[in-house]
């Protein structure tokens, strides 16, 4: 299994380091995790945050983050992260303070597209993290995969099905989504649009995996959600379910 969304670092009341994430992965039978920084490492201290996820070892692969307001320095940091093996870009418009559609974000998104990276953005808080704003930029970069981090949790969940209909390159990170919401996306858009994620340390592997198992997906859909989609989107090897 591949976890498409774990978090490393220290943010307000959440903290997780690589050793503890690996312990939780082993306990849950998860082979690989894609992690992104949280807290100061995500909002302002990108070099430290990116190093944390990019140097966590072979079973943890990193999403690089930069604050788009850094301008050219943000692009330099993305180049450094590419050299360190980043598998995608993570942005948090609410914490980092920009609309996804705002021109300040465009160079960062264009650079991710140039690198062939998927782009995950945390969605769900209103204003900056509006899931429909993510769908807008997904339409602007049709060759890039965008992932709705947290799937609009909590009160933008009802926007997700139509947003995904209107942006075929938009996928759901199921890490904070309830089972019926996951099922709705599978039914309407296919299992190929859903990524299993843990949101560790906020959520727990056991919670997400049991929610997925209760849906009774057929084997190919289950495999797509738990492994194949992430392997394709993040260009990962291994992580058999």
């Amino acid at each position: 299994m591949i976890d498409a969304h774990a978090m490393l670092g220290d943010e307000t009341y959440l903290r997780l380091d690589a050793d503890e994430l690996l312990r939780r992965m082993d306990a849950a039978g998860v082979d690989l995790a894609v992690a992104r920084p949280m807290g100061a490492g995500m909002v302002v201290d990108h070099r430290a945050g990116n190093d944390l996820v990019l140097k966590a070892g072979p079973r943890i692969r990193g999403l690089a983050t930069v604050n788009p307001w850094w301008g050219p320095k943000a692009l330099d940091e993305l180049a450094r992260c590419r050299d360190l093996g980043a598998v995608g870009l993570f942005l948090d418009p609410a914490r980092q303070g920009f609309f996804p559609t705002e021109p300040v974000a465009t160079p960062v998104l264009a650079r991710a597209a140039e690198y062939g990276w998927p782009v995950m953005m945390k969605t769900g808080a209103y204003v900056y993290a509006d899931i429909l704003a993510l769908a807008e930029v997904a339409r602007d970069f049709p060759g890039t995969t965008f992932v709705a981090g947290f799937g609009g949790f909590a009160d933008q969940w009802f926007e997700l099905p139509m947003a995904m209909r209107n942006a075929p390159n938009l996928m759901l990170d199921a890490s904070m989504m309830w089972g019926a919401g996951i099922q709705q996306i599978v039914d309407r858009h296919g299992a190929g649009r859903v990524l299993f994620g843990s949101a560790e340390p906020r959520n727990r592997y056991a919670v997400v995996l049991k929610a997925i198992e209760r849906r009774g997906l057929d084997e190919s859909s289950r495999r797509a959600v738990l492994h194949d989609n992430a392997a394709r989107v993040f260009k990962l090897e291994g992580g058999r379910p």
Partner: peptide, 15 residues
């Protein structure tokens, strides 16, 4: 109509 949600929310608590 959504017994699974009750199960998930109990999981949230137990875990």
């Amino acid at each position: 109509g959504s017994w699974e949600l009750l199960a998930e929310r109990l999981d949230n608590t137990i875990e």
